[in-house]
């Protein structure tokens, strides 16, 4: 059903730490690896070894340069996947009911048997979280690894999304963002977790932790600085003679 639930029992989602992400793309690879052979149709590639390769991914890492008013620019690696929005515009536009948001945990899923591949949900998503698979003709999106997180055949430490499990810098956290006492909620409260494009009213469940303020070299400048002797010293001896001789030329 494409009617969004009034409220969900839990709000399972990710917290992504932009401070610690090193941009290694390991989560991209593990996501593609897990999801191409588990839930739903495989994530196909087109022309993977040719001149113009492309393919379906549920998680992609952008990199942004942020230039503060003073000081050097910062490079921020920016993982982006489905934010499992509370007010998910991708769900309500779906004409067939293939897209739905689960009442029990808030995960937004696509029932691929009902998907006609019209692409309207991808148009409605501001974050680029949905990609139409060229080979299968159906819409693919992050499932929050619904086939891992409740999977009792897996060891307990593996019952988290593949991207979270694989992240070598612990930049991705998984949990219930509807429970204010959960680890992820406390992390969000502590670090000022934010929504992407909040003005669009999608109410994303996933939160992003902004980069911590950078350490700065001691930039305090002595008010007497202009009066101090210049640090660069005039060369003496042979170099001094050479300097003057070249200057005269």
């Amino acid at each position: 059903m494409t009617q969004l639930p009034e409220k969900t029992d839990r709000k399972m989602g990710l917290v992504i730490d932009l401070d610690t992400c090193v941009g290694c793309h390991a989560c991209v690879v593990s996501c593609k690896g897990w999801n191409t052979e588990n839930y739903g149709a495989p994530l196909s590639d087109q022309n993977p070894y040719g001149a113009d390769p492309s393919g379906t991914f549920l998680n992609r890492i952008h990199s942004y340069e942020v230039q503060p008013e003073t000081g050097p620019a910062q490079l921020v690696h920016f993982p982006k996947s489905c934010l499992h929005c509370e007010d998910a515009p991708c769900v309500t536009v779906c004409p067939t009911g293939a897209s739905y948001k689960r009442t029990e945990d808030g995960i937004v899923l696509v029932n691929e048997k009902d998907c006609i591949g019209c692409g309207l949900c991808a148009w409605a998503c501001p974050y680029g979280a949905r990609e139409l698979d060229k080979a299968e003709g159906v819409m693919k999106k992050c499932t929050l690894c619904v086939d891992r997180i409740y999977n009792e055949n897996l060891p307990e430490e593996d019952r988290v999304p593949a991207c979270v499990r694989t992240c070598p810098s612990n930049a991705r956290h998984f949990g219930d963002l509807g429970d204010p006492d959960s680890d992820v909620s406390q992390l969000v409260a502590e670090r000022g977790g934010m929504d992407l494009m909040p003005e669009l009213g999608t109410k994303p469940v996933n939160k992003y932790l902004p980069p911590r303020p950078k350490d700065r070299l001691n930039e305090e400048i002595d008010i007497l600085a202009p009066l101090l002797a210049p640090v660069v010293q005039e060369p003496k001896g042979f170099l001094g003679w050479l300097d003057k001789a070249l200057e005269k030329l």
Binding site: H25, Y64, V66, K80, E131, M194, M197
Partner: peptide, 23 residues
Amino acid sequence: TATGLGSIGTVRAFEPPHTGTNY
């Protein structure tokens, strides 16, 4: 607003996720 990084400074797309194109 898309990146939430505006409070730090001017944001510029530095590197896309991949060299090729996508859907």
